[in-house]
Design a binder for these strands. Structure first.
Lengths: 237, 237
DNA sequence: CACTGATTTAAGGTTGGCGTAAGGTTTTCT
DNA sequence: AGAAAACCTTACGCCAACCTTAAATCAGTG
């Protein structure tokens, strides 16, 4: 699925405890290929052998500093580098970014923030932006992103399944119009499908659970009894 | 009918394995007419003979590159083209899209994503959104939208039911003319209906409650005693 | 091959659109 | 004027269409 999670990550830091903590955070997040180094020498060795896809680099190291290590790395690779720096060392960050680091994060950090920044880098580098086929649109408070297949609301984010996506895409194509149940079935299953008509209802229900405040009293995905459904979208300029 | 699945697809790639994999994915998805080419020469030949509806094109080919092939194709056809490109070749994508490619996908790709994008292109090109059959029209203060099945007035919005829609659509088709009760019944119930003639009146009443200021003294949906009804619509330029 | 999540099936509950009916009003005809 | 015909209005009950939930099945993955 998420190929980002299969990227090779290298953690370079002299504190055992911190390395372990970072590794634990990352494993929990789903990353599987994590390497550690405590010194510059070790780090260079690992870079040459396993060729990590991203390096997390502490500024302070026993046998040199992170910046010179970065320079060394940069001679042979343009892999992204995320700096770890102690609080208040503002110059460090400027210097690091100037040398070609991709981001920095201040210790102590929140695991969630750390992961988010790291993922952002990986995505930026390894999943270049792609042309959008479907726009992002609002349903009241909620943001529906058909391209990425998610519904966001507040801090939360619900993924949409394949069928939900197919149905919502069809409904969005015909937004503010009545879409017959037949048309919806066709969009999701093709013309040669003979399942129960109930199946569609169940999927509609699931979609409503993600896009409606109260799925039983929908405001956006409405039933048109005897005909089908309609998705009411307010278009703004 | 899902016409999309009967479109002719051409896969151009020099790696046998990848071609086979793509074909397998597409067949599983329900596509039946899939052609393969390993070289530019082959591809051009197939384009001329079978005239595919969409081409999946690798950027790197043994006897030329995908871009020049695209140019050649574009001289005689505007069929949609989906590029395959290796990771990180950002310029490729820009160049490809600039030359008239419809989308690109980075190898290695997820089967699901690949199919979704391909379907998106086919839908966009071969199933253009149908034009509105019914315009939105005004009845005094009220706005009637037969496509979405609603009547708006001020901030409020009343939904129309299936029967109401059928009748209003018929009345609108024959707007400013008399429509016989028979014709209306036929539009709403088909030829073989033997209910009370009162039923039609009840539905007319319900429509009036949604489109008239005073349903008992209609201004727009008028009774023509002995014949039927007529919908008076002022057409504006 | 067991596990996970997505999808379909199944079964029972709910409801809103629709048709019916009954009484009222307006128009037309004699 | 009185009667008949055409149409209006209101209310009520039914049942197909729809909803809801849970359990079974399927499909992909390590």
């Amino acid at each position: 699925m998420d190929e980002i999670k299969h990227k090779k990550l290298l953690i370079v830091d002299d504190e055992d405890e911190l390395r372990q903590m970072v590794e634990k955070i990352l494993r929990k997040e789903g990353f599987t290929r994590i390497f550690q180094a405590a010194t510059c020498a070790e780090a260079i060795h690992i870079c040459q052998t396993v060729k990590p896809d991203l390096t997390i680099l502490d500024v302070m190291l026993p046998d040199g500093d992170g910046f010179s290590l970065l320079s060394t790395i940069r001679q042979t690779s343009d892999m992204p580098v995320l700096f770890l720096t102690a609080r208040g060392e503002d110059e460090d960050r400027v210097l690091g970014l100037g040398l070609g680091a991709d981001d920095y994060i201040v210790k102590p950090f929140l695991p969630r923030e750390f992961v988010l920044r790291l993922m952002a880098i990986l995505r930026r580098v390894y999943l270049p932006p792609q042309p959008k086929k479907y726009p992002v649109f609002q349903l009241g408070e909620r943001t529906v992103d058909l391209e990425s297949g998610t519904v966001r609301h507040g801090g939360n984010e619900w993924p949409l399944t394949a069928k939900e996506l197919a149905l919502l895409a069809k409904l969005y194509d015909q937004r503010n119009r009545i879409v017959t149940s037949d048309a919806l079935c066709q969009a999701a299953w093709g013309d040669d499908y003979y399942g129960l008509e109930n199946t569609l209802m169940v999927h509609i229900r699931r979609i409503r659970e993600k896009i409606e405040d109260n799925p039983s009293h929908p405001h956006y995905l409405l039933t048109v009894r005897g005909l089908g459904y309609k998705l009411m979208v307010k278009e703004e300029e």
